[in-house]
Amino acid sequence: MQSVIVIFIVTLMVFLLMQLVPGDAVTNFLGASATESQIEYYTKLFGYDQPVLVQYFKWLGGLFRGEMGRSISLQMEISDVLVQRLQVTLSIVLPAFVIAVVIGVSLGIVAAKNRGTVLDSLISVVANIGMSMPMFWFGLMLILVFANILHILPTSGYVYPQDDLGAAIRHSVLPVTVLALNYMSQFCRQTRSSMLEVIRQDYVTTAKAKGVSARTITFRHQLRNALIPIVTVMGASLGAMVGGTVLVESVFVIPGLGNLMISAIKARDFMVVENGVLVISVVVAVCNLVVDVLYGVIDPRIRND
């Protein structure tokens, strides 16, 4: 329920803010040579002559019928465009997320288990670099090394997996790496600190006194109890990744949600922006919901409340 209200407020705010931006989609689409009557005709056709709130509620009403409206600049149904672009974005975000989780959490555990050693410092350095390095710069460096110098990977572009799986994978390696590195570092740091909190708990000593293996102690007794803050960060990150791939998409020229939003803003195609924001906020809300459900699965004390 809470998330529905949040989504409503976000879309309303974006809708109103877009009205403040100078320029409109119709003039942009028709170009400088358009006549007054043409502009008037299209403005009426898309309903842009009506009051702002009427437009907003018409759009909202359309959503309940499953209609997002038509894009002026793209001359396509917005829902079709968004679905297609979201798939592209997810095909980069999901692998990056999985890699970031697996490597980030593993490194975090290793660092916590070897606290104060050279290995721990090394992992911390890598994580700090990963977090502080700007994504676009790291992306450009990777392109320079792997595409321009070594010639083993394509510089940019996107291939749909259904067209050519091999080429699709080759094209995704660099963007996925760039996106994964940043989030991996966050997961690593969070895992390390919450593992350190549980690593000397009494129940860990109890488990050791039972004679169980080091692996069982790490995963069943320590990680399980350290998971709540880690999952929180993961949920927030997944939402942020979907909304924030724009940098990676620009650098690698990927036709995803982020690039769609940029071109829509340039064309003043507000309805595309509005619906794009809606999709992103729904993704974020779903991530939060999943995290909330996971809390209960992880910790029985939360389940009972």
Binding site: Y203, A207, K210
Partner: peptide, 16 residues
């Protein structure tokens, strides 16, 4: 050999 610890409040794993 096994051990009974001082504080039962913290010597059991809360999530199992």
């Amino acid at each position: 050999v096994s051990m009974i610890f001082q504080d039962p409040m913290s010597s059991l794993n809360p999530v199992l």
